[in-house]
Amino acid sequence: MSAVLKVEELAKGFTLHLQGGLGFQVLRDEQLVVNAGECVALTGPSGAGKSTLMRCLQGNYGADSGRIMLAHRGGMVDLAAADARLVREIRRETLGYVSQFLRVIPRVSARDVVAEPLLARGMAPDEAEARATALLTRLNLPPRLHGLPPATFSGGEQQRVNLARGFAPDYPILLLDEPTASLDAANRDVVIGLIHEAKSRGAALVGIFHDIEVRDRVADRTHEILALEEAA
């Protein structure tokens, strides 16, 4: 098996200038290796830094030090040192992310939200639309909603749009933040199926799964994040 994601000595803290420069450390000397075809579940107490690590892995948070090495375009690149353009390229081609909540864009339909990353990768519009429709249908989003902007959708419907968007492009590395939190049992099974398919095509997945049953069914192993002592 080959490692497609390697976190090395990652550190991340925050300085709150508006709170008198209050600083706290969330991650220190974090190490994680994920191979192709493998799903790793992040575990640990609430507030320990699981989401912070996820956001660092996505490039949404900057790392203070350390490396986040990703297999990208045939080589290993360090996401932690990548400039804005390289992060965008990595997100377009290599690194998918299903956030807990959909960031709704006014007037853009559910189908277009899902098709957008496919179009960005150069897929023909009708093919992208067909794939978007197929995924939304598989996730049991009623066809009458496909053409509507998700702003007025329920939490569970928005999450399924988000999941379809994340699974549409077959990313080699996929990050999942609570992907089944607002789903019923039937849709949870669909998501578990999507995760298994992603693994069998060789994707590496990292997820936060509070649902123990889901975690047991998809994760090959767990990676525990321990809360650091309060730092000055």
């Binding site: 200038h17 508006l18 490039g59 948070y61 900057g62």
Partner: peptide, 21 residues
């Protein structure tokens, strides 16, 4: 300056933190 979502979600400079807050 930097990646749009990072500047807004993980602002480093005091002034950016104030703008976002």
């Amino acid at each position: 300056e930097g990646l749009a979502d990072r500047v807004l979600d993980d602002p480093q400079h005091e002034y950016t933190q104030l703008l976002v807050a």
